[in-house]
Design a binder for these strands. Structure first.
Lengths: 354, 354
DNA sequence: AAGAAATATGCAAACGTTTGCATTTAAAAT
DNA sequence: ATTTTAAATGCAAACGTTTGCATATTTCTT
């Protein structure tokens, strides 16, 4: 009694004494079906409660109208914002999004690539784990001409469309800012160098030091996953002996926040005694006291671009020779109390764009 | 040259001079295929680079191994956390998740229900828009015995499995807390009453007032979407005339944060002059100064329960008579500086569970 | 050594669409 | 009225699996 209610175009055809092909074409607004027939078919479809079956169509057409998205974590601010934008944009264009998270596990990422291929997604967008350096699990998409776009955390030397932030410039700008605010001994807390983001931010950091003739001290950089726990431990190391640094460039905001807490604990004033910067412009950076200078990576813009790139690639015929362009999303330094000086009275901002 | 590389079980069968049925069974570890044959088939599958086609299998089996998830917004803290948990849990069980956002638009929600049905999702989990009061767009799932679970924002009187927070108790507890801290004139900023969450929180609020014999003043409740902009405007109304309230129960943390900013602007001290509470225990609530008393809704637990409910429903045969149980997820009052007294020196918390 | 039982494999239909090609019907041109 | 052209519809195969049933092969009984 349950399964017998599932209506198909065959039922519509029978009901109207038409062929299934006519019904199919009518539903798809094929131009050589008469207006009258289209009307009748659509009306009957409604009457019978007909629901198209995407899988059947997909099988026949070899397209699923579904796009895969692989990110490390969907609840982190930056990928969450990007995912939101991508999802909305693709939804507008009739695509569904299979959103998956690798949880920064290389093995999970491989498994996901596999199942998403099996689902025959029409395209795939991915931001890799921190530890992905071999990208061969994505070969199958390339080999079969399935649009493949990497963003934010992207491969090195893997022929593919890439959309990334300007992490070199971000690292440079934020370091330069610290220097201009008077810092002479700047610690950098970085993520692991297996990830392009951190390689570039470190490069930017070094480059700024060089520009201002500040000697680079290798032991002033710490590398680890940027969690709260790790950040706390690193603080313990940093402040185990003097001289204390007068600036810390943290490669994410969670780390910067943790540093602030640690400084409060050891009665170090920010920004008077030490200046601190984060990265990503997490909403918390604006709200904490002192508010944290950070780097806005324009996640919404990145999301837009990723979606646009996917749609563009989906448009063009499979045979189009690929060119692997790289798009760079700009960054914006957001200066706040953690580097600017004593915390000023917050200006009213409630009426803003939020 | 591109399409010709897509291998199917037919290719495997030919290569080994076996029938497709045997190959299919071998790949699915059907018990009456010999171990030797299974070996040969799997080896050949690997050799040919065979990739199963989920759509074909899905069409045949009438199951897609895909589950739909509809939430208002995937980037908001609460649904994001829930989505994360659900996605990970279902992934473990071999299901893909189609995550969609309604953007709190009723029309979009209807469209999503439609396309998710067309995708023949094996189950659907949804948290509705603020304005959904008619749920008939989900009838098709019920009618076809497709597991359907609502969570957080759930229907009223719509026969279906429901998993929700204890919003009545949340409203009651937080109001009681304000009263116990000495508040006698408590404003409540609520979301629209089309959504069950706010109906219940308001009920809890009233109930607490009653218990402590505090007269209820209808004009002390404000109803609107809980955005920053709206909150600011409401603050302007509230503080346009004296007497000021001595406590505000905001139905989300964004609103509470905005209130804090407004109070700072008009030089009202929190919690000395006025106490403020939020809802949801957004990460920002902990980090702002003063930190904000809020209600932890245990999103991870809710996610776990939703996933478990989906899996349980998927397990049982389609014919099982449905019973529409309602699960209530507990809430936890997290008291912080915004109600507790002058901001104390933050105790070290870096080493904690984060 | 023969039949019975168990194990392994094959055949063919089915899932719900779409689409190239063939055919019918209607409209236009002579 | 007859031929030519255009418009509308139908036939049947195909997409890649799975599965009930039938058949072939092996193993066990006696």
């Amino acid at each position: 009694m349950s399964k017998r209610t599932e209506k198909t175009i065959v039922d519509i055809a029978e009901e109207l004494s038409l062929s299934v092909s006519t019904v199919s074409r009518a539903l798809n607004d094929n131009p050589n079906i008469s207006a009258r027939t289209k009307e009748r078919v659509k009306k009957m479809a409604r009457k019978l409660g007909y629901r198209p079956n995407t899988m059947a169509a997909g099988l026949r057409n070899n397209k699923s109208k579904t796009i895969g998205l692989v990110v490390p974590r969907i609840s982190m601010f930056f990928p969450a914002t990007i995912s939101t934008v991508i999802q909305n944009k693709l939804q507008e264009h009739g695509y569904n999004l299979l959103i998956c998270q690798s949880n920064d596990s290389y093995e999970q990422e491989i498994a996901l690539a596999d199942t998403l291929y099996s689902a025959r997604v029409d395209a795939l967008a991915v931001s890799t784990t921190l530890y992905t350096t071999d990208f061969s699990h994505f070969d199958v998409f390339n080999d079969n001409n399935i649009p493949l776009v990497f963003f934010d955390r992207v491969p090195k030397d893997y022929g593919v469309k890439v959309i990334k932030g300007d992490d070199y410039l971000g690292g440079f700008t934020v370091t330069q800012h610290l220097i201009e605010k008077g810092c002479k001994d700047i610690v950098h807390i970085s993520g692991p160098l297996t990830c392009n983001l951190y390689v570039e931010r470190v490069a930017g950091y070094k480059s700024a030091l060089r520009k201002y003739k500040i000697p680079f001290n290798k032991s002033r950089i710490f590398y680890h996953e940027l969690t709260r726990e790790n950040a706390w431990q690193t603080c313990e190391k940093i402040f185990a002996q003097k001289p204390y640094p007068d600036g810390i460039f943290a490669a994410n905001d969670t780390t910067a926040i943790t540093i602030l807490e640690y400084c409060r604990k050891i009665n170090l004033r920010v920004p008077e005694d030490i200046k601190v910067t984060g990265y990503s412009n997490d909403p918390r950076a604006e709200i904490i006291t002192p508010s944290i200078t950070s780097v806005d990576q324009c996640p919404a813009m990145m999301g837009e671009r990723v979606a646009a790139a996917l749609l563009a690639l989906l448009q063009q015929p499979k045979s189009t020779p690929k060119k692997y362009s790289e798009e760079i999303i700009p960054i914006k330094l957001i200066t706040r109390a953690s580097t600017e000086g004593p915390d000023v009275v917050l200006k009213k901002q409630g009426k803003g764009k939020g």
